[in-house]
Amino acid sequence: MRLLITGAAGGVGTLLRPLLARDGRVLRLLDVAALTDTGDGAELVAASVTDLDAMTAACADVDAVLHLGGLSTEHPWEQILPTNIDGTYKVLEAARRAGVPRVVFASTNHTVGFHPRDGHEAPDHLFPRPDTFYGVSKVAGEALGSLYHDRYGLDVVCLRIGGCFARPLDTRMLETWLSPADAARLVEAALSAPGPLFTVVWGVSDNTRRWWSLAEAEKLGYHPRDDSERYADEVPAADEEFLRYLGGGFCSPELDGGGRDGSV
C-alpha cells in the first residue's frame, strides 16, 4: 500500500510520519519544503500542491492521499486562494486522473469557528460558519470533496481537526486537543473504513473537557485513547474573550482581512 502525504514537512505531517509508517506501506512524502531522509524507506517528492502536473505524477501508483498541504493559519486572501483552495482542487483532480480511490482531507474546526458555544455538544456535519479566510478555504475543500465524491465516485473523508500538537498549548486546547497518536488512529480509520464514502468528522481526542461529537468518527472505526486532562496543571490560560465562539481566538478582529498570521 502506498500513501501519499502532502504537506509532509509541516507540523502535523512531521508528527504523523513515524506513526503512519508500517510494514507493507510505502509513504510518499510531498512538500515544497525540504524533507529529511530518515531511513524509513519513504519516497520524497519536492513539489507544490498548486502544480497539477506534478501532483498527478505524485499520485501514480498511490492507494490513498492524506492531504495536509497548504497554509495552516490565517493569511491574506491572495495567499490563501492559490495554495489552500486551488491547491486542494488540484490534489483531488490529480487523484481522480491517477485513479486514486480515496483522499483524506485535513479540514479544521475553523470551518465552523463563528458558531457560538451554547452549552451543548457540537454535532458532526455542523453547518459552515468560518472564522477566517483560512476557515473559508477549508469549507471550500470540504465542498470540493463532496463534489468529487458525488460526480466521480472518489471517497473523501474530511477531518475537522482541533489542535494537533505534541501537547495542548492552553486551556482551550484541553477541550480541542488531538494527540498525535490519536491523529494517527483517526487517519487509519479514515483510510480503512468501507466505501463508498463522503463524510465530515471532528478530529479530537477523548478529552475530559471535550464538547465535540465523536459519533461520526467512531462510525469510521476511530477509538481515541488520549485525554488532555493530564496536562491541565501545566498549560496557560486561554484568552477568555473569544471562548464564546467555537473558533476561539480565530474570531478576534485582529485577524480581519487576513492582516496577520494566527495560531490554531
Rank of each mutant, 00 (worst) to 15 (best):
A190M: 11
R151V: 12
W177T: 07
G87R: 01
L92A: 11
V204F: 07
R225W: 09
G39F: 09
V235G: 14
A215L: 12
E142N: 01
G11D: 03
F165Q: 09
D61R: 13
H75Y: 11
D131V: 05
D23P: 05
L178N: 04
H75A: 14
F114G: 06
V45T: 05
G69I: 12
K138T: 02
L20R: 00
A54D: 07
P168H: 07
D53H: 14
R230N: 08
A58T: 08
V100N: 05
T132Y: 04
T88R: 02
V100Q: 04
F165W: 12
G119Q: 06
K219G: 14
W202V: 02
A21F: 11
L4E: 00
L3N: 02
A217N: 06
L197E: 15
H223Y: 14
R230H: 04
L174K: 15
G11C: 01
E229D: 14
E93I: 06
G119F: 08
W212Y: 10
A181E: 03
T50Q: 01
A238S: 08
A237L: 15
A8Q: 05
R28D: 04
S213Q: 11
G258M: 06
E78A: 14
E43I: 02
L147E: 11
A9T: 05
L169S: 15
C158S: 15
S263A: 12
Y134Q: 04
G39K: 12
A217H: 10
E240L: 12
G69H: 15
V91C: 03
D239Y: 00
G70F: 03
E234F: 03
G135S: 01
R160I: 05
V112I: 15
V136N: 07
A98C: 07
A60R: 14
A232S: 13
A166C: 13
A95L: 06
G259Q: 10
T6M: 00
A238K: 05
E175D: 10
A122V: 15
T132L: 09
R96K: 13
T14R: 14
L147V: 15
R260D: 00
S72Q: 08
L255V: 04
E241I: 04
T36R: 13
D233G: 13
F242V: 05
G119T: 07
L52S: 02
G153E: 10
D37I: 02
D155W: 02
H149E: 10
V91H: 06
H67Q: 12
V104P: 08
